[in-house]
Simulated scan of single mutants.
Amino acid sequence: MIKLIECPRDAMQGIPHFIDTAIKAAYINQLSEVGFDTIDFGSFVNPKAVPQMKDTEEVLSLLDLHHSKSKLLAIVANLRGAEDAGHFPEIDYLGFPLSISETFQQRNTNKSISEAFNELEEIQNLCEVKGKILVTYLSMGFGNPYGEEYSPEMVLNFVERLDQLGVKIISLSDTIGVANPALITELFETQIQAFPNIEFGAHLHSTRETIGEKVLAGLKGGCTRFDGALNGYGGCPMAKDDLVGNMATEVMVETLEKAGHDLKLNKRELKEAMKLTQFVFTEV
């Protein structure tokens, strides 16, 4: 079964103007009507680092989750954020960004990789106590722009360490949109065969023209969990090409349905959500 994870948090966090809390909540409420498996709705991080997400708790209080089948995911960058998120029973998943790149780990969470692993272990333990599931995003998983060493074997080594900590969901992340179909297929095939007890996801960035081939490459490698954002909003601020945003959900839906997958989405509600993006992400 294909799982689609819609990521309004990733789409919103880089928007320079502050999006009103009520607008955020209304948009996420609309997304919850579509039938996505999970909605990455907010983050519990330092508001100075990500000011757009400073109202995540308020947004959560405005969500109407009674009739939604979608689960909620919140991003955390340290144990304190995980403890804050852990107080809310509505949140099912905590997402933590771990990077293969030492440079990006420092830029993203102000920690070394070694420190990040220590933090991750504490968060994993907290999740087990609080009844949450940790999703680890393995960023720079397909290469990086810093000239650092990279290889598929490094990815395998990181996954092995995460497996030893009991992590059950790992999303391989192409932070700057450098992955090609061959590498995507290779990485997923290798990881899924080596660690059948782990659920692997794809958090890829892409220009609109190459989304379809990347989705199909992931499918070929055995991946059935895909992150996206309507209209492809968001992306890594370090990307040199400002067109390298998130995978546009509507393009992924079209690709997956053409490949024969029944996604069980409410197309009428999806169309309404698409209309809302123009209002949410455009400064008035």
Rank of each mutant, 00 (worst) to 15 (best):
V59E: 11
D84S: 14
M12W: 06
G147E: 04
S32Q: 10
L187D: 07
L243W: 00
F117K: 10
E269T: 12
P152W: 01
Y137D: 07
L216A: 05
V155W: 00
G235K: 01
L126E: 03
T282M: 01
I2T: 13
P152F: 00
Q105G: 03
N118A: 09
K267L: 00
A82I: 02
Y146A: 14
A179Q: 08
Q30W: 04
F188D: 08
S70I: 03
R268G: 08
S151A: 05
I123Q: 04
K240R: 10
S171E: 02
V159C: 13
N246S: 13
N29R: 14
T249P: 07
A217D: 03
L134Y: 02
G177W: 01
C7A: 15
I91W: 02
Q106E: 11
A26K: 14
G143V: 14
V280L: 07
D227H: 11
N197M: 07
T255W: 01
I5K: 06
L276C: 04
I133C: 02
P51K: 04
I198S: 13
D242A: 09
G221H: 02
G143Y: 07
G177T: 12
A273W: 04
P152M: 02
L187N: 09
I5V: 11
S32V: 07
Q30D: 07
H87N: 15
G166M: 08
A202F: 10
V167C: 08
N78W: 09
S171D: 00
T21H: 05
P51S: 03
L162G: 10
K48Y: 00
I198N: 13
I133M: 00
C236D: 03
G221L: 01
K267M: 07
T185G: 05
T282H: 02
F36T: 13
P8K: 10
K258A: 08
A248G: 12
E153G: 10
H67C: 11
T190M: 10
E283G: 11
K54V: 10
L165F: 06
I23K: 15
H205L: 06
P8W: 02
N231C: 13
L79R: 13
F88S: 12
A22M: 12
G235T: 01
D37H: 15
V155R: 02
E115W: 00
M154G: 04
V244A: 03
K264C: 10
G86R: 14
Q191F: 07
Q106L: 08
E254Q: 12
L263C: 09
G222V: 05
I123E: 01
G228A: 09
M154R: 12
I5P: 03
E119C: 08
G177S: 09
Q13Y: 01
P47Q: 04
E148C: 12
G143N: 12
T255I: 09
R208A: 13
D55T: 15
R268D: 09
I211E: 12
F36A: 04
V284N: 07
